[in-house]
Write a protein that binds this DNA or RNA. Structure first.
Lengths: 168, 168
DNA sequence: TTGGAATGTCAACAAGACTGACATAAAATA
DNA sequence: TATTTTATGTCAGTCTTGTTGACATTCCAA
């Protein structure tokens, strides 16, 4: 059985990919994702919302005026599922849905003042944890973190992620 | 507005932590987790199972003879929720539940042959994606990846993760 | 020996995902 | 112009997986 060190000397590239190393990565991903969502989850619960609402708020804020269809492909859920979430957010006055100018079938989505307030609160909590993790791990680790995550995405999703990443 | 480079020169440690950088990390985490679960999800669906079953199989395999209580704290769900999943796995002959020897209130959990077969199939699919991502990103990136993930966990969870990590 | 604590099971419910069917309005096209 | 396609929304029903509450069993310590 190979040792499991994370040496950087070339030649270890093969030894490196043991099932043990991979398993650790898998478990780290599982446990870290729990931490990743923990803080927003607490805030959402206070408001009677769930993770689905957070995702919608995040991406509406991210791309002001996005259409429902656009949001669907980013979130990777069905329109029925998204619609339920979106409807409550609109009813509660956090999201505004305007009929499209050029194509009146479309709905352009925007956050209201209240929506922006909640979104900021959620993302600030999530950023704070990410910031702490980044500080502990250091710049070089962060670069590696993002590289591995990007390589882990499905091709189609990575395309969307990269397009989104460059915006603004 | 600061530039967003991931430079390694010391002194950039502060510039580095812009909201933009943090947001990219957050979105990368979100999209990557989808990829992370995609392959097992497909296999599970064929068998009529969900992610909860995968998690149970993984950790029962990981720590043979573990108790229900032990599993609960690792998985972070209620015992009732876990019990439903566990019951179907036992009924389907993938998991065996033996009354504890020293404490007969406890149940010790084991994978059967069939359980091991499915677990291997699932973890092999997940490892394969992780392996591909690791290969693309390189050894140094992987080290950083794990460092950031570990820093992102809740303290209690990290404690469990590290204890689990050292096993075997 | 008895009452509390630990462990596990059963029942009922809720959130949020899914599919399928269908309605409406608008755009695109034949 | 008539027809088809597209974008969106809604209703109904199902499934997974989380929740709480109630309860049975077992162990241990007062």
């Amino acid at each position: 059985m190979n040792h499991g060190g994370t040496g950087t000397i070339s030649g270890e590239n093969l030894l490196f990919l043991t099932d043990e190393q991979l398993r650790k990565g898998i478990e780290a991903m599982f446990f870290a994702y729990r931490g990743f969502t923990a803080d927003p989850d607490r805030i959402l619960a206070e408001h009677g919302y769930g993770r689905a609402h957070h995702r919608a708020l995040h991406f509406v804020n991210r791309t002001h005026g996005t259409t429902v269809n656009n949001l669907l492909s980013v979130l990777g859920v069905t329109k029925q599922s998204l619609n339920r979430v979106l409807r409550t957010l609109i009813e509660d006055g956090l999201v505004e849905s305007r009929v499209g100018r050029t194509d009146r079938r479309e709905r352009n989505l925007y956050l209201t003042e209240a929506g922006q307030t909640l979104e900021r609160k959620l993302s600030e909590a999530q950023r704070e944890r990410m910031r702490a993790a980044y500080r502990i791990a250091g710049p070089q680790a962060v670069a590696g973190f993002r590289q591995v995550l990007e390589a882990m995405m499905d091709d189609e999703i990575r395309r969307q992620y990269l397009a989104l990443k460059e915006r603004r």
